[in-house]
Design a protein around this nucleic acid. Sequence first.
DNA 1: CTCGTATGCGACACTAATGTCTCATAAGAA
DNA 2: TTCTTATGAGACATTAGTGTCGCATACGAG
Lengths: 183, 183
Amino acid sequence: MSLDREELLSTAADVLTRRPTSSMDDIAKAARISRATLHRHFAGRDALIRALEQLGLARLDAALDAARVDEGDAAEAVRRVIAEAEPHAGFLGFLVTENQLFEPGEQDAGWTRIDARIGALFQRGQHEGAFRIDLTAAWLTEALYALVTAAAWAVQDGRVASRDAVRMTAELLLGGARRSSER
Amino acid sequence: MSLDREELLSTAADVLTRRPTSSMDDIAKAARISRATLHRHFAGRDALIRALEQLGLARLDAALDAARVDEGDAAEAVRRVIAEAEPHAGFLGFLVTENQLFEPGEQDAGWTRIDARIGALFQRGQHEGAFRIDLTAAWLTEALYALVTAAAWAVQDGRVASRDAVRMTAELLLGGARRSSER
DNA sequence: CTCGTATGCGACACTAATGTCTCATAAGAA
DNA sequence: TTCTTATGAGACATTAGTGTCGCATACGAG
């Protein structure tokens, strides 16, 4: 009878990313629970948002751990990061979109850490000569967020096949749109 | 004394993208006008949103015209599209993020047309042998939206230098992160 | 200058959303 | 079964946001 908190938060992230003005009732309906129950688990909207943020950051951190960002070939590590992050794209989209929490100046510590971990991966790739240096690591990091999120949305809307998402995301980020022979 | 409607809508797009739950008062404050004046120009929140959507679509269409999407080298055309779209990234971000309007099933006609124009560009590039065919045109289109928007946000947050935005966006989309020698 | 118009400010009623509460019910454990 | 706990449904007051109005003011055209 107890409800799955993580699943609830996951659907909440989806709903809020797709329609940020959703009411608590909308969220409750999407999660197939009553508004009262939603309030029992999260004191209010703010608490829900914060829980969303926390879980999202925790999952991304875990994804980076699972992807072993510091090991092996940098390009392969990027592929692993994308593959590990893709299942949590709903949370990633929420975190990227919902700048609501990150007030100007007060950047969230957890987010900064994730930023640093991914940025370090790209820097490593640049130092190892695998990645071009005319694109900054910061930009590549932003691009990774954007592409993973975009891929998830495209899948959700049926514009991209689910099984292609990870490969297409990685290929575009690493290889770009040009044909190899063109370079 | 009359106010610049387009500039007002532009700041409204920025505000709503950054913080989708912003109230009419927030938007008015951001535009440095009173809430009453905002209501004088737009009957209500819905009307504002629709005007935002209309202007955004019109600007993107104009950007595609200016970029001459059907002419010349496909890769160069993509560069032109990015360069022309970048100044309107605020609107693009709004359109991409605010799925609120595009209810499931009732895809907006204007948006579909823009999608088709950009998709056709990528398809042309694929037929001409310039772009790889293992990444679908639909995905490349999505990626273009995502990267242009992400670049604008990164610039706004100071993570990417303004003058680098267009080049980095185009380079990543076309060439990817890998060094040329790697391929 | 005078006039007309657009704006800012504040007040107001109305609506939607929020947060809290009670009570009945359903699920699971002992 | 009985007991405990979580949930759903609904009522309720409170709050925040919306949309409208009147009035004063400031700008610009003439």
